[in-house]
Amino acid sequence: MKLNLRVWRQKNSGAEGAMVTYEVDGVSPDMSFLEMLDTLNEDLILRGEDPVAFDHDCREGICGACSLVIDGDAHGPERTTTCQLHMRSFRDGDTIDVEPWRASAFPVVKDLVVDRTAFDRIIQAGGYVTAPTGSAPEAHATAVPKADADFAFEHAECIGCGACVAACPNGSAMLFTSAKVNHLNVLPQGAPERETRVLDMVAQMDAEGFGGCTLTGECATACPKGIPLPSIAAMNKEWLRARRKVR
């Protein structure tokens, strides 16, 4: 396959960026999108040019490091992570636009790499449980109803990639925050911090400069892990409950 790539190039966070066109030849339909970018980068290095910087790590869809808005879609046209997107989803001769996540809370570091430490600080604000560490506790010591366990697991799937923020027209982090809040708040292990968790995580989310939720549903459509839109309503419910309980 031969492709035309239009890639966002930006030297550093302070520099102006622009879309730059590259031609990539010899792309196999079995390559992942990142492998296709590797091919481009090898070519750029041989030509003595600066390779395109992009985030990646596990390349098996579980770490949340990869990003990229491909043809206007976070993680591209398939509902998966960019590393699990294969070139067979494109056609020979296609022109593909590759851009970084766009949100003022996720400033561009270089090219396609954005600073997602805002998510780390939201987690630090309450995305944990206070529990004695040591050997793993007996699994049956704390009974969790099946429905709650399923609900928690559905939200625990969030890998924190930021596609929700990238897809949201308001740059809102509500889906990410709700996934983390719901995951822990429904479990007995998360109960001691149930109220402070949601209040502090939402406060941190707002302080980071993410936008508000207008329920467009773009986030849930983009989410590679299928965190559902009703998660946001569930977090709103938790937040309102916590407001009533904590003064």
Binding site: M19, V69, E99, A103, S172, G209, G212
Partner: peptide, 14 residues
Amino acid sequence: RDIKARPTRYAHRR
């Protein structure tokens, strides 16, 4: 707030 949170538009808009 929302407009400030997303100041840059995507070149490829859907």
